[in-house]
Each structure stands twice: as C-alpha cells, then as structure tokens.
Write a protein that binds this DNA or RNA. Structure first.
Length: 800
RNA sequence: GCGGGUGUGGCGGAAUGGCAGACGCGCCGGUCUUAGGAACCGGUUCGAAAGAGUGUAGGUUCGAGUCCUAUUACCCGCACCA
C-alpha cells in the first residue's frame, strides 16, 4: 500500500468527526479518565511545534485509556483574554473580539490537522460571556467570603504595557511579557487572599502525584518559615516588633534595622535628630526599581537613627537602630534584630558601619565571616542558653519570651496576596459597584454576566486608569443595595482569572444554572492527569489550586485538590539549540511539517525526539526516520497474509504489547516507538506477518499515528474504528524467550556467552559456563574463589 | 548565595546494580537506476590489535552509566524573606 498521508488523514479526520468518536459520555456508571492539557492563549502567530508536544502526549494517553474502556474526557478551549490581543487590536484598529475569533479559528484548524482526539463538543472560550459569567460568579464568592479586598498599595507597574503586574509577572525586575522596566506605583487594587490558604497549599501537596520539582518550587515560592516575633522597647518609650527565625541568637543582637518604608520613621519624627537624612534615604530607596535593588545586593547602605535607641530585652543593653533597604517592608514586621556574628547580611552591614560582633554560637571565626551553621554549633555568651544546641536554644528562648510577654512563636510566608486588578479593557469586568453610602457592593448574581461594553477606544490611559473609566454611561449605575447613585469598578481581572477554573467548565460546558452541575463535577473531578509547562508552576497552577480550595470550602467541589497528577514537558528548541522565538528566527511551523510529512509523522517525531520531560532541539533530518517507519508500516499491508499467528512473531508481539502499554503509562513515548520500530524490522527480516497480527500492531500504533492505523485496520478487513477497538492484552509467560544468552564473566570481565533454556538451574548454568572453551581455558590451573550465578542474567567466576 | 536538575558515540538518545551505545539521524560501502538529496541491502563507540571507554577523583560490590563521598561544567527556578 502506498502511504498517501494527505488523503488518509483527511478521510479519517472526517470519519472521526462524523461519528463523534471522541465525545466524553455523561454515563456516570463507567470508570472515568479526565486528561487535561493547558489550553492555549490563541496568539496571532499560530501554533509552533512546541505546542503539539504535550497535546500529542496526552492524546496518546487518552486514546489508550479510551481503548482500555474508560470514559475519557480530553477537552480543549481558549484562554483568550489578555494583553497581546489587546495590543494587536489597538495597533490595527480591530476589536479584540474579532482578533480573538480569528486567532481561535486559526489555532483550531491547526489542532484539528494533527488528529488530536479532543472532544470538540466541550470547547470553551474564556471571553465568552456565558463562560465569564461564572468567572465573575466565583469572584463574587471570594468577595463575599472576605477573600477579595481593595487595598492601596505599592504595585509593580510596567512602563510600557501601562499595567499593574503581579509579583509573579515581574522577572528580574522587568515585565515578563515585554521586558520593559517595572516601577513602583501606589494604587488601589483588588487583592485575593491567597495567603490565607498558604498552609493548605503546602500541606496538601503531600498526597499528590506531582513531579517533585513542581512540589518543591511551589513550596519554595510560598516560603513558609517558622520563628518568633520579639518586642524591643525603645528610648522613645514605645515598642519595636521584629521577626526572626533565630531567636536563639538574641544575646548577639547588637543593633536593629527597619525598612525604609517602616511607619515608625514618621512616628519618631519629633525625636529623630537626623530626620531629614533618614527621609532622603527613604526617598532614594523608593526610587530604586526592583532591578536596581537586586543589582546592588553586595553593597549595603543605611542611615543610623539619631535620637532613638532600642533595648535588647535579654541583655538590657541599649543598641542603635538603622534604616536600610536590605530589610524588606513587606516581610515579617519590616524590622529585624541584627546578629552580625551569625548572619551574613548583618555581618556585612556591621563591618561597614563598624558595629560590634558578638559570638553567641561557637564553631566559627566570627571576626572573618558570619557563622551560620545551625547543625553543629553550641551556644556561648548566652546566659541560660549557653551550652545548648541551636535547636534546643531556639525552643527554650521562645518559651522564655512567651512566658515574659516579650515575644511569641510566629510563622511567616514569602507568598503575597494576589494583585487581581488590571487597568485594561480586554478582561473580565469586576462585578462590583461603589456606592458612597454602602461602599463596595456586589452585583446580584442573577444579573451576571456583567458584559464588557463595546468601547470606541481601548487604549490604556496615560493616568493608568482603565479604558472603561471613560465610558460614563457604563460606569454610572445604581447601587443594588440602596438604589442610590453608584459607580462600577472599571478595572478588569487579570488573565489568570479565566484559567483558574476552566477545567471545571469542561465537565458541563453549557450549564447556565451553575458553573457545572454538581453531579458532573463529582463524576469527572479531580483531573486524573494534568500536563503543563513549568513556567506556570507558581502562577496558574498555584492560583487554580487556590480557587479549587475555595470552591471546596463553599461546597461546589467535593475534593480539596483539583489535580491528582501533574507532569511537565520539556521545551522543543530550535535547530541551533536555542529557545524557539520569532526574534531568533528559528521557529518551526507545524503546518509545514504536516504538509511535507503528514500529521502522523509529525506526532511520531515529536514523541520520538527524546525524553518527554527534557528539552530537545528540533532536527529536520530525524523526521525522515519517522516517515520511513510509517512508509514501511503502510507496506506491511501488502506483506500480511492469512489469519492467526505466525510462529516467529508470537513472543515478539507479546513483548511489544507489554512494552508499549507500560511505556505510555510512564510517558516513555520514545522507547515505545523504538520498540515498535524494532518489531517492524523483525517482521521484515522474517518476511511474514498475518492480517490478525498486523491488526494488533495497528492498535498499538494507533495512539501515536492514528490516521494510518485506521487505514491499515480497515485494509485488514476490520470493521469500526481502531481508535474505539479494545486495547490488546498480553500473556506474561509469552513475553519471555525460551532460551537466553547469558554472559560469562571472569573476575567481572565478560569473556564469553552461553545459550541456555530460560528455566535452567544454577548447577546446569555453571556446568555449561565451565564447558565453554574460552572459560575452560581461563580457569585452567587457577583456583576458583567464588561463583556468582544469577539465572537469566549473568555468570561471574572469580579466580585467583 | 539557596533550591532542583543534567553530563553516555559525529548528533537525538537507550540501558529493574548484570554483555554500555537499543531505536533513529548522519556517515561509509553496495544493489537498482540516464540520474539520486528516492528505495533496498550491509557496516558504523575509539583502537591495526591487545585493550580502553558513560564530565573528573575516590569508595562500596563478585560486578557500577546506575549506589555513596568529593569535585567540576552546564541548564532551570528563587534571590537581601532575617
């Protein structure tokens, strides 16, 4: 059979569509499998070859599960709100809705050409009002539970996008999206209290089947640390509270530092003799961008407060207070006790400002470097703590502080609340109004969705206000509570909103009474296997876990976690080994590959390219190998004769079924394909395969190269779709050969091999080994020290 | 600096502690061709060979790419979080 991939692929894509072959069924009695890939942001560039890698991988998993009898939900949709679309719309004077429609059509066409078995009946789009109705509804639940609040705060502001960014969107002090400088700006922002869920977001990871690096990255990002808060009295007559993880070193605290933004600077205005100098330092620190702050890590700066001193609560000694930007206002209490002997930053600062360094933990040389080892040191110069280990001393000190009312145990997190407002047009409107009398009021749920109005201009304003603010007709409204005049919130939600719950909508995508029917959620959730990029670990993945927990708390979900298993794919790099990007000019368009080689070859190559979790460079030469394999597979149709099994292929076939089955489960797609290639080579060597055997082979290949597998399945006289046939089973006994080649070692070096029946016992094996010519010669005249026989594996004779 | 990961032929990569280099690319030789950047067949870690060989140095073991210790290079994430 000639492999005419173009007609074959068109034919089977049409048949799958006509028969609705991959629809998930609402038959809740069957075992289910929910496979999820991250839905794409439909950009104007179309897909590049990186997109199909995870899609194909979970398509393979889904296709196999379907054949194994599961009711499979493998859906797709569009995460379509966001800046690039809006920016494109502004530049080209086309409404972002039109741009989105266009991009979605392009993406969908590309995805369909790849033969992915998505259930297109459940397609969703985050910009669809019937979808974002429920995004808004979830926001209102957060608002009603006090998990959404408005706060005046210093935010990250991108000077180019003119938009507020979340901490997660600032990378190395610049905008993640455009690379422009990010400055601080004080604005009123809606915030989501993700910090309230910090402990659960860490603790609930324990039972999940997530790849380890995802877990550790989330744990580090949340950054839980346990320590103590301690109150220091000051000469101004008040109390300065600090946070420390090293309460054990309190005897060594020789000065204190407060952040430039610390409120006490204003409070101490009257007593500070150098108030102007302190203020100048604060202003200078505020002007620094994040980038400058991190660049200047090495050189510590600061100003000593003249006129106020603190009293070390344990030694009673007066110590100076400094203001320095190495202490962050947003973490802990914004103030620290400095222990230069046992903290590198404090040590640097103390050296620069010539402050005393008192050793309280023996084991290092504190004159030359801070001694920070908490494992080996012993407390010294520390009164009742002297002689204790660090761990013992921490505990004892914290109890002492608590008993005397000068401190307490305290847990802190690096995680901050989620900045949830964007001063942009192309996002979900926040369904709240502000009433002078009632404050912020939720729009009644039966009035959702609050639709995005059509505006003339969606340019961001230079003042940083949302484009919606110019639409007075839309902004002015009545308060749902008192009926008085009110104004709508004009900020919109960030792009992360729609993607924080989209997997739930797939369970019941057209429901207009609820985000999904409870019955559907209880059946399909949690997601059994979720694959996505590492770049979303501390963004989308964390956010959506947070929302799922809130929905669990209000009874919408019955499980506390949304995803049972999380895996991540490696990037496909350009031919030159660099990241694929437009600017590098190394982007490969999947359409070209599909055109030249066919979708099946494209799919096969993307899976064969290497370890799924590792990145791999694109190699146009290697694609040919996959094409050849399929060409030769198609030709098997002419070779196949008769029914039943052919003697030579019985064991290879059982081995292959076992290998492909387990490799798919373990995401070892590359070795599954290699095994099929090897099997095919064997068929050609023997020049014999029956129609039944080729049909089984087609089943095994069908998740990887579904179009050609269908064609061959049909040509072999089978009815129905191979995609919906039963996954083949194997006989364990037939996955092993009758005889094995066993290597024989002398002193650990292979000298010969012997061929033996699989069930030969140790004595027989050893006898056969010793009978081998080369082995007999090697042991002649030597004394045998030891004989190791591992049946089926190896023989090692140790001689002297 | 902290956390995580990775080092195997010319290349992508295989190897439950048991014959290192499966499978594929590329390359070399051949067959068929007016032709070959098509197809098919054979070969291909290095070395003429003995032998050597999985970043480097040790260790455990009858046996180590795999386990342990140290070291080095590169990649990813976080980064003054007290």
């Amino acid at each position: 059979m000639k492999y005419d991939y173009k007609s074959i692929e068109a034919k089977w894509q049409r048949k799958w569509e006509e028969s609705n072959a991959f629809a998930a069924h609402n038959d809740y009695s069957k075992p289910k499998f929910f496979a999820l890939v991250e839905f794409p942001y439909p950009s104007g560039n179309g897909l590049h070859v990186g997109h199909p890698r995870p899609y194909t991988a979970l398509d393979i998993v889904s296709r196999k599960k379907r054949m194994q009898g599961y009711n499979v939900l493998f859906p797709m949709g569009w995460d379509a709100f966001g800046l690039p679309t809006e920016n494109f719309a502004i530049k080209n004077h086309i409404h972002p809705r039109i741009v989105t429609e266009r991009n979605v059509a392009r993406f969908k066409g590309q995805l369909k050409s790849l033969g992915l078995s998505f259930d297109w009946n459940r397609e969703i789009n985050t910009t669809d009002p019937s979808y974002y109705k429920w995004t808004q509804w979830i926001f209102l639940q957060l608002f009603k539970r006090g998990l959404a609040y408005k706060k005046k705060m210093s935010v990250n502001f991108c000077t180019s996008c003119k938009v507020v960014l979340a901490n997660e969107e600032v990378v190395n002090g610049v905008c993640e999206r455009c690379g422009s400088e990010v400055i601080h700006k004080v604005k009123e922002q809606w915030m989501l209290k993700i910090t309230e869920y910090a402990d659960r977001l860490i603790d609930d990871l324990a039972d999940l089947d997530f790849i380890e690096k995802v877990k550790t990255q989330q744990i580090n990002w949340i950054g839980r640390s346990t320590g103590a808060e301690v109150d220091f009295k000051t000469t101004a007559g008040d109390t300065l509270r600090i946070y420390t993880t090293r309460a054990d070193t309190l005897y060594g605290a020789t000065y204190m530092v407060i952040a430039p933004e610390h409120e006490y600077i204003d409070r101490w205005k009257q007593v500070l003799q150098n108030y102007d100098e302190v203020l100048a330092y604060r202003d200078a620190a505020a002007k620094k961008s994040d980038f400058e702050r991190t660049e200047l890590v090495k050189e510590k700066t600061g100003v000593r407060l003249d006129g106020v001193r603190a009293i070390n609560p344990i030694t009673g000694l007066e110590i100076p207070i400094f203001v320095s930007d190495y202490v962050l206002a947003g973490y802990g209490t914004g103030a620290i006790m400095a222990v230069p002997a046992h903290d590198e930053r404090d040590w640097d600062f103390a050296k620069k400002f010539d402050l005393p360094i008192i050793e309280v933990i023996a084991g290092g040389d504190v004159e030359n470097a801070a001694f920070t080892d908490v494992e080996s040191g012993t407390l010294v110069n520390s009164g009742f703590l002297s002689g204790l280990s660090v761990a013992e001393a921490k505990e004892k000190m914290i109890s002492y502080l608590a008993e005397n009312g000068i401190g307490m145990k305290k847990t802190n997190y690096k995680l901050r609340d989620w900045v949830f407002s964007r001063q942009r047009y192309w996002g979900e409107p926040i369904p709240l109004v502000f009433c002078e009398k009632c404050g912020w009021v939720a729009i009644p749920e039966d009035q959702l969705p609050l639709t995005l109005p059509d505006v003339e201009s969606y340019e961001p304003t230079s003042t940083g206000e949302s484009p919606l603010s110019a639409m007075t007709d839309w902004v002015n409204c009545t308060c749902p509570e008192c009926g008085g005049a009110a104004k709508r919130e004009t900020d919109t939600m960030p792009q992360w909103a729609g993607s924080s719950w989209y997997f739930l909508r797939y369970c019941d995508p057209t429901n207009d009474m609820a985000l999904a029917a409870k019955e559907a959620l209880d059946y399909w959730m949690p997601v059994d296997w979720y694959n996505g990029g590492m770049e979303h670990t501390t963004l989308h993945l964390l956010y959506s876990r947070f929302w799922a927990k809130v929905l669990y708390d209000i009874g919408v979900l019955s499980e506390k976690e949304p995803y049972l298993k999380r895996t991540s794919h490696g990037m496909i790099l350009g031919e030159n080994g660099e990241k694929m990007s437009k600017s590098r000019g190394n982007v490969v368009n999947p359409d070209d590959i599909v055109n030249e080689y066919g979708a099946d070859t494209m799919r096969l190559y993307e899976m064969f390219i290497g370890d799924f979790e590792k990145s791999a460079p694109w190699n146009p030469q290697s694609i040919k190998g996959c094409k050849r394999f399929l060409d030769r597979f198609a030709s098997l149709v002419d070779l196949a004769k008769g029914s039943g099994t052919s003697e030579a292929l019985v064991r290879p076939m059982h081995k292959l079924i076992k290998k492909v089955t387990s490799d798919i489960d373990e995401m070892k797609f590359n070795t599954a394909i290699a095994a099929m290639m090897a099997f095919q080579n064997e068929v050609y060597e023997n020049a014999a395969i029956t129609c039944d055997e080729l049909s089984v082979f087609a089943k095994l290949l069908s998740p990887f190269a579904p179009h050609l597998a269908e064609e061959v399945w049909e040509k072999m006289g089978n009815s129905g779709l191979v995609s919906l046939s039963d996954w083949p089973s194997y006989d364990e006994a037939l996955t092993k050969d009758n005889t094995v080649e066993m290597p024989v070692q002398i002193n650990g070096k292979v000298k010969s091999t012997v061929s033996l029946p699989i069930d030969a016992d140790k004595e027989a094996i050893l006898a056969a080994a010793k009978a081998d010519e080369r082995i007999a010669a090697a042991i002649l005249g030597k004394s045998i020290v030891k004989e190791i026989v591992v049946p089926g594996k190896i023989i090692n004779i140790v001689i002297r």
